[in-house]
């Protein structure tokens, strides 16, 4: 069995990132937008792991762990904002949240 070339991992990461970006742009439900952001962050992690595997270094996995930490912090704050927004405007449609109080 031949090994997986790192280029293929990078191409897959690019495709997954494009899918996540399309989700962010197309969906108006905030939960789906957060889910698409998770897919994009996961694709970024895949790119790091592919590169780390190509060079045989542990740095790719270290950066993946940092991405994981960032994703966990981001999603906890993001979902708290979603709950607060739902508490106030009773919907999760991001187009409805177009007023600011200043």
């Amino acid at each position: 069995m031949t090994s997986v070339p790192a280029e293929y991992g990078l191409i897959l990461a690019a495709l997954l990132f494009a899918i996540g970006l399309a989700g962010v742009l197309a969906r108006r439900n905030i939960i789906f937008i957060l889910l698409s952001i998770e897919i994009m962050l996961n694709a970024a992690g895949l790119a790091f792991i592919s590169a780390g595997s190509k060079w045989g270094q542990a740095d790719g996995q270290v950066m993946f762990i940092f991405i994981l930490v960032m994703a966990a912090a981001e999603v906890s704050v993001g979902l708290a904002i979603v709950l607060q927004l739902f508490h106030r405007i009773r919907t999760v449609n991001s187009d409805e949240a177009n007023t600011m109080r200043g």
Binding site: G45, I49, S50, S53, Q61
Partner: peptide, 12 residues
């Protein structure tokens, strides 16, 4: 896992 990163696979 296939790319030789089992620890990252478990974390994922």
């Amino acid at each position: 896992f296939m790319l030789g990163a089992p620890f990252a696979a478990a974390l994922e």
